[in-house]
């Protein structure tokens, strides 16, 4: 079980309200990702759920039970920290066993569970090492092991991959996703990286300044962003925004078009421009095009699209993929 509901919770530090009243239902077994720029309150929100911070008002329920006043140790949640927060003076075995020892579990049962977790996480050969002797990825797995042995109601991840190098990050992303498929336990995952959010989440919660901008599946957020912020935050490279005369006939204050929804041509099209920088990634080419009236637009082309700095190109937006926003920033 792992159904968590947040009901009108707020958090104030001193005089600053970092989380205005907020409601959120986290369903049992789902992988939910809190994403947003740094300082958006996503980590604070996670810590409120963990119980590492008190909510200023409102209530938190875990599996239908009131948890607002319950200390973190008793909420039945497990957390994986950004710094891994392993106990440096304990072996890997003792690290993983620690929560079980705190729960007063019997030694034989502890051993069984630790061995089991180590097998799942490929840590069996490292059980008697200290965290200091492990690589970043191994440490990360120990932190996960420490979380899974408890069989918690939900896992909380606080930017767990940000200290890993790029290649390892992709691997661990997959491992965590697989873990979720196997355990089917609720996971709440905080990140500032929208790629992690898109690839791992069942549902994404986009936060800005403590306010939930939108909740939805990755594809919902991608295709139907509720406002300019979400539209700009989700997707890479970022959506192009256009305002002014070009918007004219579409009855919106601002329109947005993703780089992958601009058709490119060297001979004809709606908007003319010159290539400023072209980034060849092999599979794709991203062109930063300096247009005459609309500023710089980013467009995606095939990997082999043959242009270079200074070339003239024409861009045509796919009409049905244009996002329209009102003066209030909301989608129309």
């Amino acid at each position: 079980m792992g159904h968590i509901s947040l009901n009108q919770i707020t958090k104030t530090f001193g005089n600053v309200q970092v989380i205005p009243p907020l409601d959120l239902e986290i369903r049992d077994g789902e992988f939910i990702v809190f994403v947003g720029p740094s300082g958006c309150g996503k980590s604070t929100l996670l810590r409120l759920i963990a119980g590492l911070e008190d909510v200023t008002s409102g209530e938190i329920q875990i599996d239908g039970r009131q948890a607002t006043e319950v200390p973190p140790a008793k909420r039945g949640l497990a957390m994986v920290f950004q710094s891994y927060a392993l106990y440096p003076h304990m072996s890997v075995r003792k690290n993983i066993a620690f929560p079980l020892k705190m729960a007063g579990m019997e030694k034989s049962e502890i051993d069984k569970r630790v061995e089991g977790a180590a097998r799942v996480l490929n840590l069996t050969d490292y059980l008697d090492r200290r965290p200091g002797q492990l690589s970043g990825g191994q440490r990360q797995r120990v932190a996960i092991g420490r979380a899974i042995v408890r069989e918690p109601a939900a896992f909380l991840f606080d930017e767990p991959l940000s200290n890993l190098d790029a290649a390892l990050r992709v691997n661990m992303r997959l491992e965590i996703s697989e873990l979720h498929n196997n355990l089917e336990t609720t996971m709440i995952y905080v990140t500032h990286d929208q790629v992690e959010a898109m690839t791992m989440a069942d549902r994404i919660v986009v936060l800005q300044a403590g306010v939930i901008e939108q909740v939805g599946t990755p594809l919902e957020l991608y295709s139907q962003p509720r406002n300019i912020f979400v539209a700009g935050f989700i997707g890479s490279p970022k959506m192009n925004f256009i305002e002014g005369d070009a918007v004219g006939h579409s009855e919106a204050a601002k329109i947005g078009i993703r780089p992958e929804h601009l058709n490119l041509s060297t001979s004809e099209g709606e908007w003319a421009g010159t290539v400023n920088v072209s980034e060849h990634l092999g599979s794709d080419t991203f062109l930063h095009v300096q247009t005459e009236k609309l500023g710089t637009l980013t467009a995606r082309a095939d990997g082999e699209f043959p242009v270079r700095h200074g070339d003239k190109v024409f861009l045509t937006p796919q009409e049905d993929k244009i996002h329209r926003f009102g003066a209030d920033g909301l989608s129309i």
Partner: peptide, 28 residues
């Protein structure tokens, strides 16, 4: 790092266990 003590708290350690099992050995 404070995160390690928070980890202990998440792992079900009370204040006493946190100081005896985690903080003190680390601060030896």
């Amino acid at each position: 790092p404070g995160e390690i003590l928070e980890a202990a708290r998440m792992d079900g350690a009370g204040l006493k266990a946190e100081i005896i099992h985690v903080l003190t050995p680390m601060a030896v």
